[in-house]
């Protein structure tokens, strides 16, 4: 499911005959036809082309924005869980402080500070996105720390860095990846919402959020303009969740 989406996004220039921003004012607001599979929007841009180019933007941002928080989250979570004591207290304090602020509030503040667009999303997510990972990983490593194989690694005299990297990490990674999948859904929705609100990706770069908001004007006559990108969001969300569930099942069985 996701594979289809990703390949559509990656090969977008090959699949579509149109440029995503190419306007054709003679051909506006058309319904589906052989030339334009999903019709055109109010500026005569091909909806299908914009849809798959938007997938490109949104998926790219989604993945890039997750990398940093994924790593920091696992890192801090492992430290907090493994060492406990003051590191744990510090990480908990940080997570609690950040959780106190609503996500969108932070995005809006960052967007104002750094200007709307991708950068705002990256910064915001680097700030708050690691919390979920840190929490999950912290709980796991705290219970792993008490396992006897960790004790035996310590008795062997292995340094903590090695225990964390070779012993704890492989055991927390599966869970973290499952969380990553569900978290990506949330992030995608966030990106789209921001686009919709006009503080995310700036037009003319295609994005499902901006597409929905632009199509909104015509919701009564040309319903598909908003509905189809909306479906795309739902589709991606379901795909990611299913992958997360599948991985979780796979690892649990082992």
């Amino acid at each position: 499911m996701l594979l289809l989406l990703v390949s559509l996004a990656v090969f977008a220039p090959l699949i579509s005959r149109y440029q995503p921003a190419a306007q054709n004012l003679a051909d506006i607001l058309r319904p589906s036809s052989a030339n334009h599979w999903l019709g055109t929007d109010q500026l005569g841009r091909d909806l299908f082309t914009r849809l798959i180019y938007a997938a490109r933007t949104d998926l790219r941002i989604m993945i890039l924005a997750e990398i940093l928080p994924f790593c920091t989250g696992i890192f801090l979570g492992m430290l907090a869980g493994y060492y406990g004591k003051w590191i744990d207290a510090l990480v908990t304090l940080m997570t609690n402080t950040l959780i106190a602020f609503p996500f969108y509030l932070i995005v809006i503040v960052v967007a104002f500070a750094s200007g709307a667009g991708e950068r705002g999303i990256y910064i915001t997510f680097a700030l708050v996105g690691w919390i979920v990972f840190a929490r999950v990983v912290k709980g796991l490593s705290a219970s792993l720390r008490k396992q006897e194989w960790v004790a035996s690694a310590k008795v062997l005299g292995l340094p903590d860095s090695r225990i964390l990297l070779f012993h704890i990490l492989p055991n927390v990674l599966p869970q973290a990846i499952v969380v990553l999948m569900t978290d990506m859904v949330g992030l995608l929705v966030a990106i789209v919402t921001l686009g919709y609100l006009g503080i995310g990706i700036a037009p003319p770069t295609p994005d499902w959020g901006t597409m929905i908001s632009e199509g909104q004007t015509f919701i009564y006559s040309k319903w598909w303009l908003s509905t189809i990108p909306g479906f795309a969001v739902v589709y991606t969300g379901i795909a990611l969740s299913l992958i997360g569930d599948g991985l979780a099942d796979l690892w649990r069985r082992k």
Binding site: Q147, E148, W149, A151, S152, A153, V155, L156, G157, H167, P170, N171
Partner: peptide, 17 residues
């Protein structure tokens, strides 16, 4: 000193990674 002293634990389910 680490090398000189080794330990075998109680629970065979938990003593191997």
């Amino acid at each position: 000193q680490h090398k000189a002293i080794q330990m075998v634990f109680q629970n065979p389910d938990a003593s191997l990674n």
